[in-house]
Nucleic acid binder design. Structure first.
Lengths: 131, 131
DNA sequence: ACCGTCTGCAACCAACTGGTTGACCACGGC
DNA sequence: GCCGTGGTCAACCAGTTGGTTGCAGACGGT
């Protein structure tokens, strides 16, 4: 069952759900049981248990044991996986920007035509003449 | 569609796919067209176009226009959304660890008990800090 | 020994994803 | 004008996801 997927994908996917993010947020304040976690939401405990499995598969949480309870604990180190990935490309893109600025700055004006002039254009409402 | 979903979820979900992450990585080095992006993969251009739509909906890329080409440009600022979220809870969890350590250290041994100080099968926290 | 609580597992279902093919639109170059 | 190139949109399909119900297991308290 979806055993594939590299670690990074699993972590990102795990955090792509608001419920799961909220659980992580609450776990950052302290460990909790499945029941505790389920209480605030309008969901069955089983649903929460599934979410928990996703988080555990991503390495974001670990499960303990305390009698019939299975306390959930946040493993914060996995965050590093994401931050290093993100920071790498963010920095790369920013550097590129800076270089581009330098080039433009060092240019006799009026010659900055070719570089992409991407404007945030949401799609223009052209006539949708579906037949 | 899937128009719903908060911004954070969209960004995380967008990066939960290795192909999409790879595209972002390549876009960090410079803008590209859909065709350029599609070339290295064993996928149809339409599939790449779909991926691109996901990235665009997440605000990670913007589209330009250059004749019949639609150059793709990486919008690196959106990364901040994620990093601030991540850093917040990482820090929170780390602080909690530190406080817990202090408490345990200041305790006459053998008195650990209730509240949340569950011991988990996994390794000791507080080993790594920076690198 | 029983009961209640906490949890996991399996089956099922609707909705979403990630891919395909096929048709179509918008250009620029002859 | 017509053609090739670059790209999007729509329909379809298989697999995954996020939820449900129902049942079974493990344990503590009485």
């Amino acid at each position: 069952m979806a055993v594939a997927a590299d670690p990074l994908s699993r972590v990102f996917a795990a955090l792509a759900d608001p419920t799961r993010r909220d659980m992580v947020a609450r776990l950052a304040a302290g460990d909790a049981t499945v029941g505790d976690l389920a209480r605030p939401y309008d969901l069955t405990v089983q649903a929460i248990s599934k979410h928990l499995k996703v988080l555990a598969d991503a390495g974001l949480v670990s499960r303990g044991r305390d009698a019939q309870r299975r306390p959930v604990h946040l493993e914060a180190e996995v965050f590093d996986l994401m931050t290093t990935w993100i920071e790498r490309y963010r920095r790369e893109a920013e550097d590129r920007y800076r270089r581009l600025d330098d080039i433009l700055a060092a240019m006799p004006d009026g010659t900055e035509h070719s570089e992409q002039d991407h404007r945030h254009e949401r799609q223009d409402p052209r006539d949708r003449d579906r037949h």
